[in-house]
């Protein structure tokens, strides 16, 4: 397996990943990146983590879930409590936030993943609202006023490492036996079960993994934007993330990344258009859905093989 891991293609990817890191790091150190760009860079990274993790649940496992903001909230609150109230270091808070979100994913996943399609969507939507309602009523975390004065610990390094880690783990998961089991469930649940796949196990696994990374995104968010309130994590945020996933293509990691980047960019660029920006945003979505109902990338990946060799016969690691 070693020679597979260290082939030319992977080395190029690795070099690219490291290059981007140092490039942005350098630009930041020199002061080329303005405060406005830095904030959007952070949102970009957080959105990529959210979109990729939701894609695992919706795109690859085929479970329409609308509670991603709820998991994000769990991660954000747990991490913020640890750093702000209990003086724990950031890595501990980040991990604790992620694991709490994963546990929440398992708790919500076990009963609700018996449901399918729109029933599951409604159940997860309800879950998101429960989390928000709970946060609204717990005085320890500030109720509706939320938590303020969270130290700003998220920086480019943390963001980038977490983003790459998310993409790496989820890509590898999808290419593993477990990931293929998830895809099988998406394609045909009954057939998958007949083939001996424990569908409940894999659905809950995908759910917990998606929640784990959403928790990381929440923790990063809380520690960059200084305050969190229950109304930061409304249904609309879940919906925004879902839009990125559908926009990029259900079942395409690179699609999610491109869509998250594109939507973050469009959002930032249209700030001075106020009401009109909602119209433009909606028109963009309609255009995409009319001309590419399968999303920008469909369920295909943008891979180096295609880029370098331009040979149609070579399929990406996930195949089509």
């Amino acid at each position: 397996m070693i020679e597979v891991r260290f082939n030319k293609k992977n080395l190029i990817v690795l070099a690219g990943v490291i290059l981007i890191y140092f490039l942005v790091y350098g630009l930041q150190a020199v002061g080329v990146i303005s405060a406005f760009q830095e904030i959007n860079l952070m949102m970009l990274g957080i959105n990529i983590i959210l979109a990729v993790s939701l894609n695992l649940i919706v795109g690859f496992t085929g479970q329409l879930a609308l509670g991603h903001a709820g998991f994000m909230a769990v991660g954000a609150y747990v991490a913020a409590i640890l750093t702000t109230n209990l003086n724990q270091p950031f890595p501990v808070a980040l991990l604790a936030g992620a694991f709490s979100a994963a546990v929440a994913g398992i708790i919500i996943g076990l009963p609700t993943l018996r449901l399918r399609g729109d029933y599951l969507a409604i159940a997860t939507l309800g879950f998101g609202e429960i989390i928000r309602g709970a946060a609204n009523n717990i005085n320890y975390i500030g109720g509706a006023a939320g938590m303020i004065g969270i130290p700003q610990l998220t920086n480019w390094t943390w963001l980038y490492v977490m983003m790459v880690l998310t993409i790496l783990v989820i890509t590898n998961f999808i290419n593993s036996t477990h990931g293929r089991a998830c895809v099988a469930i998406r394609e045909n649940e009954i057939a998958a079960e007949t083939m001996g796949i424990n569908t409940t196990y894999y659905k809950v696994l995908a759910f917990a993994m998606g929640a784990f990374f959403a928790g990381i995104a929440g923790a990063l968010y809380a520690h960059y934007f200084y305050l969190i309130q229950p109304n930061t994590f409304t249904f609309f945020r879940s919906f925004d993330i879902l839009v990125m996933v559908v926009f990029g293509g259900l079942g395409s990691i690179t699609g999610s990344i491109i869509a998250a980047a594109g939507i973050t960019f469009v959002n930032a660029a249209l700030q001075d258009l106020a009401v009109l920006r909602m119209v433009i945003y909606a028109v963009l979505l309609i255009i995409i859905m009319v001309f590419r109902p399968q999303g920008l990338m469909g369920n295909k990946e943008f891979t180096l093989d295609r880029w370098l060799k331009k040979r149609g016969a070579v399929s990406g690691p996930t195949g089509n």
Partner: peptide, 23 residues
């Protein structure tokens, strides 16, 4: 007066403020 919309989101309120001040 330069008007920016933050959509009621905290992160956008922050980025709009940053844009107004620095740019």
């Amino acid at each position: 007066a330069i008007v920016l919309d933050n959509g009621g989101k905290k992160e956008e309120a922050m980025s709009a403020a940053a844009k107004l001040i620095t740019e």
